[in-house]
Simulated scan of single mutants.
Amino acid sequence: MLQQFYPQVQHSYSYELNKDMHFAAAHFIPHEDAGKCRNVHGHTYFVNITVAGDDLNESGFLVNFQDLKKIVHSRYDHTIMNDQLEDFNENNSDQFPTTEVIARTIWENIDRFLTSLPNKPKCLQVLVRETPTSYVVYRPKVSGK
């Protein structure tokens, strides 16, 4: 697994959890300005998720690492991202499967899960690395998304 330091989020929570994972997926960007990326191509995406909170659950976890992996890996690994119609679509550029939108969408899916937990941890950021030299960090604005 890729081991490196990630951009840090300043916060006042007692606990911070980071989960690294990767998945292989293909995508294309359905816009004329996307150049070669208009063609179907694949990546091994590396993802880092930062979750923080003050309270642990009844198992002593902020959140179970496996739950985070399930939300991301089992949803996207070995898929064509454009086929994930609940997350992406080809008619709205805000929902094209670009690295920026993938990072935001992962955050939204994780946030939806975390808000259902009694201890209410928060996803502070999602980093998605598409290539060895290119990555995106998504952080929701403090007042919401």
Rank of each mutant, 00 (worst) to 15 (best):
residue 51 V to H: 04
residue 90 E to A: 11
residue 102 I to Q: 05
residue 102 I to E: 02
residue 100 E to W: 13
residue 72 V to P: 00
residue 52 A to P: 03
residue 100 E to A: 12
residue 39 N to W: 03
residue 35 G to S: 03
residue 54 D to F: 09
residue 103 A to I: 00
residue 77 D to Q: 11
residue 25 A to Y: 06
residue 77 D to N: 14
residue 91 N to L: 13
residue 43 H to Y: 13
residue 55 D to A: 15
residue 98 T to G: 08
residue 48 N to W: 03
residue 100 E to D: 14
residue 89 N to C: 15
residue 70 K to S: 08
residue 102 I to V: 13
residue 92 N to W: 06
residue 37 C to Y: 01
residue 80 I to R: 04
residue 84 Q to D: 09
residue 33 D to I: 04
residue 43 H to G: 03
residue 103 A to P: 00
residue 55 D to H: 15
residue 94 D to V: 11
residue 52 A to R: 07
residue 37 C to F: 03
residue 80 I to S: 02
residue 41 H to Y: 11
residue 93 S to Q: 09
residue 101 V to Q: 11
residue 91 N to A: 03
residue 67 D to T: 06
residue 33 D to V: 05
residue 54 D to R: 03
residue 90 E to Y: 02
residue 46 F to G: 04
residue 86 E to N: 15
residue 36 K to A: 07
residue 31 H to P: 00
residue 67 D to M: 06
residue 38 R to F: 10
residue 103 A to E: 05
residue 76 Y to C: 14
residue 73 H to L: 10
residue 52 A to C: 15
residue 34 A to E: 04
residue 85 L to E: 14
residue 35 G to A: 12
residue 61 F to D: 15
residue 34 A to R: 06
residue 26 A to S: 12
residue 81 M to V: 15
residue 70 K to G: 01
residue 86 E to T: 14
residue 71 I to S: 01
residue 67 D to Y: 10
residue 68 L to P: 00
residue 96 F to Q: 03
residue 66 Q to K: 10
residue 54 D to E: 14
residue 47 V to D: 04
residue 60 G to W: 14
residue 63 V to C: 09
residue 69 K to Y: 07
residue 78 H to C: 12
residue 62 L to I: 08
residue 104 R to C: 02
residue 94 D to I: 03
residue 60 G to R: 08
residue 29 I to C: 02
residue 103 A to T: 00
residue 33 D to R: 11
residue 55 D to P: 00
residue 35 G to F: 10
residue 64 N to P: 02
residue 80 I to N: 05
residue 54 D to P: 02
residue 89 N to K: 09
residue 59 S to Y: 15
residue 45 Y to C: 04
residue 54 D to I: 01
residue 79 T to A: 05
residue 37 C to L: 14
residue 68 L to N: 02
residue 101 V to Y: 02
residue 27 H to F: 14
residue 88 F to P: 01
residue 71 I to W: 05
residue 91 N to S: 10
residue 25 A to F: 11
residue 84 Q to A: 12
residue 89 N to T: 08
residue 33 D to W: 12
residue 81 M to C: 15
residue 99 T to Q: 05
residue 36 K to G: 13
residue 104 R to E: 08
residue 98 T to D: 05
residue 52 A to I: 08
residue 27 H to G: 02
residue 32 E to S: 12
residue 63 V to R: 03
residue 87 D to T: 07
